[in-house]
Amino acid sequence: MAEKQHQTLVDRVFESIFDLLLTGEIPLGGVVNEAALAERFQVSRGPVREAVKRLQGRQLVVKEPYLKARVVDLSVADMIQIFQLREAVEGMSVRLATQVMSDAEMDALVEDFSTARASRDGPALDVHVRIADGCGNARIRYLLCEELYYLLRLYRARSGKVPGRREDAFSEHWQILRAMKARDADLAESLMRAHIARATRALHDLLEARGEDATAQSEKRKTG
């Protein structure tokens, strides 16, 4: 029982830290201060340390010997490679899901999406995860829902901060679901690939602008 309670505490701390990453309160490349986090969440250092190790395992935090843990900050090139992989895998994921999901599962997905869209409660429904869950391919599901899940969520959250991108994504998701309902696997895959390609461009532009801003501030400090 004690071990289960401890595990539940680590889970809670992990999710709390991840929320700080999603909101940007701990920015990309930012220091993950275990002592400060333990004080903030009113827990001992142990659960925080274990949660940070889990973040490392999820490729969200990097920690070199004798250096502080930091949030991952992928280069633009690395990010593009990950999203290119995502475009290919999610294209196949939605193709398979369109073919194998039952009518009841499809209806439930559409209904849940409509509810989430009406409330603008995007995080309440992850369309990509639901599609991967329903695609019938265990390896695709593992890649999208476990191995890359948190890293993709972190960078998807960044692309969602581009003005207008959130509403565009809702509309793109709806078009994908309509194609799935019609059992048009070719169209569903094409729409999913286009959706992720747009998200990639939005994130690319955002990271490029952030890099340019950082360079400009650095140059300003040098000449100031």
Rank of each mutant, 00 (worst) to 15 (best):
K68D: 15
A104Y: 06
A179L: 03
A36L: 14
L207P: 05
I176D: 00
A35I: 12
A2P: 00
H204T: 13
A209I: 10
L154K: 02
T8Y: 12
R198A: 15
V129H: 01
N33F: 07
M101E: 03
F113K: 00
R45C: 04
D112E: 04
T8Q: 10
D168W: 13
L143V: 13
G46I: 04
D78G: 14
D168Y: 12
A88I: 09
F83V: 05
I80D: 03
R178D: 09
V94D: 01
R120G: 02
L85Y: 15
A36M: 13
I82N: 04
Q42S: 11
M1V: 11
I17F: 08
R141K: 14
R58A: 13
D205N: 11
V76A: 06
S16G: 05
F113L: 01
K181I: 03
A116M: 09
L143F: 15
P27K: 05
K181V: 09
F18Y: 04
A38P: 00
S102W: 07
V10A: 02
L206Y: 14
R70F: 15
E25H: 09
L55D: 01
R86W: 10
D213C: 09
D213P: 01
E3H: 11
E34F: 03
P123W: 11
E90Q: 08
A38N: 07
K4I: 10
M106K: 02
A182G: 06
Q7D: 11
C145H: 06
S44A: 12
G224N: 11
C135D: 03
F113W: 07
Y142L: 05
T223F: 14
Y142D: 09
E219V: 15
G46R: 04
E147R: 08
L60M: 02
K220N: 11
R130P: 00
T223D: 10
E25C: 01
I82H: 05
D107G: 06
A116V: 05
D112P: 00
M192Q: 10
R49K: 11
F18M: 02
N33V: 08
S119N: 03
L148H: 04
P65Q: 08
V162E: 07
A169K: 03
L67A: 12
F18E: 00
Q5G: 03
S114I: 02
A138W: 11
A209F: 09
A194G: 02
Q175H: 14
E146R: 02
R139K: 06
S44Y: 12
R40C: 10
P163F: 09
A51L: 06
R54L: 11
L96T: 03
I176Q: 00
L20Y: 10
E189R: 13
P27Y: 14
G122I: 07
T98L: 00
H195N: 04
E90N: 07
E189D: 10
Y150T: 05
L144S: 01
S93A: 10
D168K: 05
F41G: 02
K68W: 13
R178Y: 09
R201G: 09
L203W: 04
T8M: 13
E167Q: 09
R54S: 08
H6G: 07
